[in-house]
């Protein structure tokens, strides 16, 4: 630490010390409790808890619906970001401001609002009912809620990259004879791709852990529409702390892997676009 003698600014020890202290007592030590508690289970017992048919069904729904929701958001989020950056249209400022709504709106509020909309007597539910499509209280309802909460992540990661693009690149492509679609496919999209994947991964990560907006619309039917976070709650309500913790470990390990992937993707975005965020 010989470099410290060259530091002009004060407060390094104080601020770093406090940061590490606060991080440890609020996040790291409590999180370690999950792993320590699980260690008391033993591997065979742990495996039994996290692979019961009902829990496996919840993984399929949570991960499947989250992936699909993130994919839907990637497509429509890109379209929204493109429209907001490239075009002028009435109401654009309002749309731009409301994109963050799923982030600011409490999840329970979103949950009951979506349920009211898609219930058989709701505005959208009553329109879909004659077509034989049931959304509320089915896995489709889970998907709708996850699309809602994931949308800002894609739009807000792609939007700044789109804003920074120069016209020159696309003009060069056009002057070399590329059609508009070819320019998008071979010039613009490759530049956007890292950010788009980052947004996709963020939306996916958020969706897998989501609880509040999903449980109202899901109906929570065992083996059909139960999400993994709900399995933790169910175990807790039965005072099965070890069981709840085992499932939490599975979810945590998954979040860690995804967090690393997202960090990698963000580094790629910075390299690909020269942006430093």
């Amino acid at each position: 630490m010989s470099r410290r003698s060259f530091q002009v600014l004060p407060g390094f020890n104080l601020t770093l010390g406090y940061t590490l202290f606060y991080l440890s007592i609020i996040v790291l030590i409590p999180l370690s409790a999950v792993f320590i508690k699980t260690a008391s289970l033993g591997l065979a017992q742990f495996w039994d808890v996290v692979t019961t048919p009902r829990v496996l069904a919840s993984y399929r729904l949570s991960f499947g619906a989250s992936l699909l929701a993130a994919a839907i958001n990637a497509v429509f989020g890109l379209a929204l970001a493109w429209a907001l950056v490239r075009y002028s249209f009435p109401g654009k400022k309002l749309v731009d401001a409301l994109i963050d709504l799923p982030f600011a709106l409490p999840t329970a509020v979103a949950g009951i609002a979506l349920t009211a909309l898609y219930a058989p007597n709701g505005w959208l539910g009553s329109a879909l009912e004659p077509l034989g499509i049931k959304v509320a209280f089915t896995p489709l309802g889970v998907l709708v809620a996850l699309v809602f909460i994931g949308l800002p992540f894609v739009v807000r990661t792609v939007q700044p990259i789109l804003e920074d693009l120069d016209t020159e690149l696309e003009e060069a492509a056009a002057s070399l004879g590329a059609r508009r679609w070819q320019t998008f496919r071979y010039v613009t999209l490759p530049i956007l791709l890292p950010a788009l994947l980052t947004g996709f991964a963020l939306a996916f990560a958020r969706a897998v852990g989501e609880y509040g907006s999903v449980i109202f619309i899901a109906g929570n039917i065992p083996m059909v529409s139960e999400i993994t976070p709900l399995m933790i709650i169910t175990k807790l309500e039965q005072y099965d702390y070890a069981g709840a913790t085992a499932i939490a470990v599975v979810m945590l390990l998954f979040s860690f892997v995804l967090l690393l992937a997202i960090n990698g993707l963000q580094a790629w975005t910075e390299k690909a676009t020269g942006r430093n965020r």
Binding site: P30, L31, A33, V34, K37, T107, A205, R206, V208, G209, E210, Y211, G212, P229, L230, I232, I233, L236, Y241, A244, T245, A248, M251, L252, S255, F256, L258, L259, I262
Partner: peptide, 13 residues
Amino acid sequence: SVSPVVAGLIYVL
């Protein structure tokens, strides 16, 4: 990136 449910659980533990 931690599920809110897990966030509650850790304090219960």
